[in-house]
Structures are given as structure tokens and as C-alpha cells.
Amino acid sequence: MIDLYVLLIFMIIGAIIAIEVKDLLSSVVAVGAVGLGLVVALLILKAPDVAITQLVVEILCLIILIRATLKKDLPFSTSGRWVLNSVITIGFIAVFLLAAWKCLRELPEFGYPTMKVASTYLKEGFSETGATNLVGSVILDYRAYDTLGEATILFAAVIGVLAIVRRIGRIKRGEIVEEDDE
């Protein structure tokens, strides 16, 4: 399990760099490194389907974020409302840690899950659905409504992005039209 610890520490260091670096493009690249570390961690944790999905999603996210930050290297401001912001941040993290501490004591030990629901899937999954990959049988057969809801959310988000990004139909009367296609 030592490789998992090394990967998690690598991810934490990458996250610290992504948060604290001044340059926006460097920050986006650092968060990409965190995501690729997560891909390797998922492979170690025996979740190959999730690792493949995470790899594709990570690369798409990087492309979108680099497109947004390209040529927009802005000065970073930290002045004003310093004390209030810090107090609110520390308060939120303290409340979260308190809740997390209560929950972590209730969890079963790492490596020994209870698997109440999953034992049924493991026993009867192959004979009921005929899928050799149990993750596929769960998302496409036992919990197909989840996947339907996921597709609905994806579709709604795509419509939202198109409505925000498009230029036709946003021009009001009396406004000077300036087209700048990038």
C-alpha cells in the first residue's frame, strides 16, 4: 500500500502548487497533474473503468480550462477584507473537520468493507444480467435510472453552455455591435 501513500502525497503537493502559484496557466497544468495522479491511484485501487473515464474527462477539462486562461495572464490581487475572509475560511474548515471526524469513526477499517448490497450483485450479477463486467451491469441494468439522469444532466449542461457562449440573440436594440471572433 506504500505506492498509494506516495501517490496521495504527490496529489496533495500538486494541489498546493495549483492553489498557491501566481500564474493561471501553471495552476491549470498543476491541477492536470493532480488528475493524472488520481488516474494512477484508481488503477492501484482496482477500478479500471473509473480510471479510463477519469483520464478522458481530465483531458477534456484541461483543454477547456487552457482555452479559458490562454493569453489572460492577470495580476493576482490579495488586498482587502483579508481578516474577514480568513476567519470565514477557518470557520468553514473547522466545521467540516468536526463533521468528518464524527463520520470517520463510524467507517469500517480501510480494506475491509461491509458490502451488504454488493454481495448480491457479486453473487447474482452474472446470471441475472449476463455482463462479465460488474460495473457495467450495475450502471446499465440495476441502476439504469441513474445513468438516464446523468445523461439528462449532461444534456442540460450542454444546452446551458451553448446558451451562454453563443453570440446571436444576445444583441439588444441600440447597442453597438462589435464582432470579435477568436
Partner: peptide, 16 residues
């Protein structure tokens, strides 16, 4: 085998 249920749920969550 490891638990397939969290993997299926996380697969949905990543795409969202």
C-alpha cells in the same frame, strides 16, 4: 472482488 457499487456511482459523478 472489490465493491462494484461505489465504482458505478463514481463513474456517474465524474461525467457530471
Amino acid at each position: 472482488m472489490v465493491d462494484p457499487l461505489p465504482q458505478a456511482l463514481v463513474l456517474t459523478a465524474i461525467v457530471i
